[in-house]
């Protein structure tokens, strides 16, 4: 039986490998990003020649100049792809990691902006990921902008969101608007529309998000699990059980 998380991992892997997107030779993964990290391992162990820099490794951390090196690398243009999420995400791909209500989050407080305000503009491709797909998360307009999805003319930026993956569907982003790319099993175009607070484009017939292949599942449950266990023990237990990889 395929776990929902495994389908999300495979969906992100497919976006990483999208031949229409600029090449991903060096991918960085930030804090609390189990599913994006698993997708990166899946494409790498599946044969893609890619360098992975995982920010939160306690041992064998890829940065020898401290955590600021991630941002220096991004500023230099040496990171091709990064992942971001948000407590709120709106139809212009603006991300809110601050909170709701008055600044700095007098309603619900989110963790804070991390490096999003910088990475979203300096990295050519960002894949947005947020498992909860509801009107409280996907809003017409975010209460506060941690990181802007679209910039004013003249602002230097290398790229923006490539896509948004949620627990219900995959949206593509063309630099201005989201477009429904596929719905996960159990969802329809209408059910996604009902749970989405922002407006977006959609084809006449919604495609279904493909399942991971048997080869992908074997990689996920073996070598990918093994590489995730130290950093994401609770996630690995939930998705792949107590068995050691």
């Amino acid at each position: 039986m395929i776990q929902p998380e495994e389908r999300l991992i495979a969906a992100i892997a497919r976006l990483i490998l999208d031949p229409a997107a600029p090449p991903a030779r060096h991918i960085a993964v930030g804090a609390a990003s189990a599913i994006p990290a698993a997708a990166c391992w899946l494409v790498k162990l599946g044969g893609l020649d890619v360098r992975l820099s995982l920010l939160h490794l306690q041992r064998k951390n890829p940065f020898t100049e401290g955590t600021r090196e991630l941002f220096d690398l991004a500023g230099q243009g040496r990171i091709d792809l990064f992942f971001l999420g948000g407590g709120q995400i709106d139809g212009q791909a603006n991300l809110n990691l601050i909170g709701t209500g008055d600044w700095p989050g007098t309603g619900a407080r989110f963790p804070g902006s991390f490096g999003s305000a910088f990475m979203y503009l300096t990295v050519p491709r960002t894949i947005l990921f947020r498992e909860e797909h509801s009107r409280r998360v996907l809003v017409p307009k975010v209460d506060h902008i941690s990181a802007a999805g679209v910039s004013a003319p003249g602002v230097v930026r290398r790229g923006t969101a490539q896509a948004l993956v949620t627990g219900r569907c995959v949206f593509g982003f063309d630099g201005a608007r989201f477009r429904l790319a596929s719905v996960h099993p159990g969802e329809t175009a209408d059910s996604v529309r009902a749970e989405t607070g922002f407006d977006y484009d959609a084809p006449a017939e919604a495609a279904q998000t493909p399942d991971p292949s048997p080869a992908q599942l074997a990689l996920l449950r073996g070598p990918v699990h093994a590489r995730m266990a130290a950093t994401y023990p609770a996630f690995c237990r939930r998705v792949w059980g107590e068995n050691a990889a």
């Binding site: 955590t67 600021r68 941002f71 500023g75 601050i98 600044w103 700095p104 804070g112 902006s113 991390f114 490096g115 999003s116 305000a117 910088f118 990475m119 979203y120 503009l121 300096t122 506060h144 902008i145 941690s146 990181a147 802007a148 679209v150 910039s151 004013a152 602002v155 230097v156 930026r157």
Partner: peptide, 30 residues
């Protein structure tokens, strides 16, 4: 609230003994 590279950059300015340093990105953020 700040953003990670801004905190590193403010400390790097102090490290170098200069009054400020520029940082790319961030524009458009509240």
């Amino acid at each position: 609230d700040a953003t990670c590279p801004a905190i590193h950059t403010m400390l790097q300015a102090a490290e170098k003994g200069v009054p400020f340093m520029p940082l790319r990105g961030v524009l458009g953020s509240d």
